[in-house]
Amino acid sequence: MTLRLDVVVPAHDEQDRIVACLEALATAVSNLRHERPHVSVHVSVVLDGCTDDTAALVHAHADGAAWLDTLVTDHVGVGRARSLGAAHALARPVAGALVSAGRQRTDEPAVDHDDADLDQRWLAHTDADSRVAAGWLVQQLDALVSGAHVLVGAVVPDPDDLDAVVLARWQATHPPGATLGHVHGANLGIRADAYRAVGGFDPVPEHEDVRLVARARALGLRVDATTSLPVVTSGRFDGRTPGGYAEHLRRTYGDAS
Rank of each mutant, 00 (worst) to 15 (best):
M1P: 13
L3Q: 12
R4S: 12
V9R: 01
H12W: 12
E14L: 00
Q15G: 05
Q15A: 14
D16P: 01
I18E: 01
I18G: 03
V19R: 11
L22S: 04
A24D: 03
A24T: 07
A26C: 09
A26G: 14
V29K: 07
V29S: 05
V29F: 04
V29H: 06
V29Y: 05
S30W: 06
N31W: 10
L32I: 07
H34I: 10
V39L: 11
S44I: 14
V45C: 05
G49P: 11
C50M: 03
D52L: 12
D53I: 03
T54S: 11
L57Q: 15
L57W: 01
H59A: 15
A62F: 06
A62Y: 00
D63K: 12
W67E: 08
L68H: 00
L71D: 06
T73E: 04
D74Y: 10
V76S: 02
V76C: 01
G77H: 02
R80Q: 14
R80H: 11
A81L: 00
S83C: 00
L84Y: 02
L84P: 06
A86F: 05
H88W: 10
L90S: 01
L90C: 06
R92Q: 15
P93D: 05
V94M: 09
R103M: 15
R105K: 09
T106N: 10
P109D: 09
V111L: 15
D114N: 12
A116E: 13
A116Q: 08
L118H: 11
D119P: 00
R121D: 00
R121T: 08
W122H: 06
L123P: 04
D127K: 03
A128P: 01
D129Y: 09
S130Q: 03
R131H: 09
G135E: 14
L137C: 12
L137M: 14
Q139T: 13
Q139S: 14
G147N: 14
G147S: 10
H149G: 07
H149A: 15
A154I: 01
A154W: 04
A154G: 04
A154S: 13
V155N: 02
V155S: 10
P157H: 04
D158W: 00
P159C: 07
P159S: 10
L162Y: 03
L162C: 01
V166I: 08
V166R: 00
A168V: 04
R169Q: 07
W170T: 07
W170G: 01
W170N: 03
Q171Y: 01
H174R: 15
H174P: 04
P175E: 02
P175V: 09
P176I: 08
G177N: 09
G181H: 10
V183Y: 05
H184F: 14
G185N: 08
G185Y: 04
L188Q: 05
G189P: 02
I190F: 05
R191L: 04
R191C: 02
A192S: 12
Y195E: 04
Y195H: 13
Y195W: 13
Y195S: 03
R196W: 05
A197L: 12
G199H: 11
D202I: 07
E206M: 11
H207L: 13
R215G: 01
R215E: 04
R217Q: 15
L221P: 08
R222K: 13
A225T: 15
T227K: 11
P230E: 03
P230R: 02
P230Y: 04
T233Y: 06
S234H: 08
G235E: 02
R240D: 15
T241R: 07
P242E: 13
G243S: 11
L249H: 00
R250A: 10
T252D: 07
Y253G: 02
